[in-house]
Amino acid sequence: MRDDTLKYLLVLPAVLVVSATAVWPLAESLRLSFTVGRLNRPGSLDQYLGFENFSWAFMEDPAFWNSVWVTAVYTVATVGLTTVLALGLALLLAPEGRLRSTARTLLILPFAMSPALIGVSFRFMFNPEFGLFDAFFGLMLPPLAEISWLANPTLAFAVCVMADVWGWIPFLTLVLIGGLAAVPRETIEAARIDGANAWRVFRDVTLPQMGPVLAVVVILKTIFSLKTFDQIFMLTNGGPGTATQTLSHYIYFNGMKYGQIGYAASVAWLMVIPMIILTYFYAKFVFRKE
């Protein structure tokens, strides 16, 4: 067989699988977003009502705006905290040595944990009667011991952020350690000889060199933060009330619990738009070196 034919036959199955499992549902979701789309009403999935779902979301649905707000704050908080903490940890773990190498190995463990399980474990730790954190605060700051964390909107949100940050620090740290290793030794030495202290070296040499890696990490983490569902579902299920209801969770509830699949699809597509923009920037980094 000639290469000219073969090369297209090689990629064809993959293109078909990706089209069927990702491109089709994306297009079909867009179509559904313009329909009445009630799961329990036959025919409503082909009953079009123009942009009514979208205008309903924008104009008449405070719960939608609540989930947008929750997702936005959640994303800013988790991306910021994870990046800063991971950078600190990367600086701590980057040097060679047996202790640090063991530490780097152990760091992979939290990342192999399923997000749903992370949600469960944090619910466990913040249990008001016998959670680990509760006991910890009971010992250190007795007034905090009586708080039931997950029943308070602000604290429940904070616990969700904490669980997310905890789950993502290992991955970001490992990426940033790789980035640190790529900073040329000579540049750092030269700055040291010129009399720069550790902080100046970090700010003026290391950090600028880390720019592209940091950008990749921030974009990737932003995408995953925007999508967050699993931990939230297991940890607070969006509550108390709707204090931790992210967009994904709101879409799930509308589509699956209330059967409003058309409306869920339109909210889902509102979420796809920022993803497309972020993916565009991400793709630039992936294709940069080719």
Binding site: L26, S29, K227, F229, S248, I251, M275
Partner: peptide, 9 residues
Amino acid sequence: FVPAVVIIL
């Protein structure tokens, strides 16, 4: 990067 919830509907 497509949210799983979009794919599943």
